[in-house]
Amino acid sequence: MNKIKSLNDLRKIKQDVEQKMDLREKSDNPDRYVQIKVAMATCGIAAGAREVMNTLIEKIAQDKIDAVVTQTGCMGYCHAEPTVEVRKPGAEPVVFGHVDREKALAIIDKYIKTGELLEGIIPVNYQTA
């Protein structure tokens, strides 16, 4: 397929994408999908948050996971950057620290898909009880 270059190319792709997927109207139902927030302040970016974010976006597209990836600022865990907060529908948010490409994939494959927790959770936000 030719590369996308103009707004018209984008319109065509949009129709294609629209047909293949069932539109979730994400912005209207934030409770129905997984929200992933990557901390992208100076500390996060310097520690490699961008690679983590790219990995998450690719993986979500590839595995067709009902999730959106957004950015957040510094949460004060500069020592543990890159950090990723995951909020599954109806669950408390969990913050993972020292995330790299491999761990980003594990967050999706394990925590998001099966609910299995990983090492490196920043305990401040997380209560097991």
């Binding site: 707004l7 018209n8 984008l10 319109r11 792709i13 949009k14 994408v17 629209e18 293949k20 997927m21 539109l23 994400k26 912005s27 976006i57 979500i60 597209a61 067709k64 959106v68 990836v69 957004t70």
Partner: peptide, 13 residues
């Protein structure tokens, strides 16, 4: 151009 398909739709990004 996207006519309501969100810009953060993984297939679009």
């Amino acid at each position: 151009a996207l006519e309501g398909v969100p810009v953060n739709e993984p297939q679009i990004i």
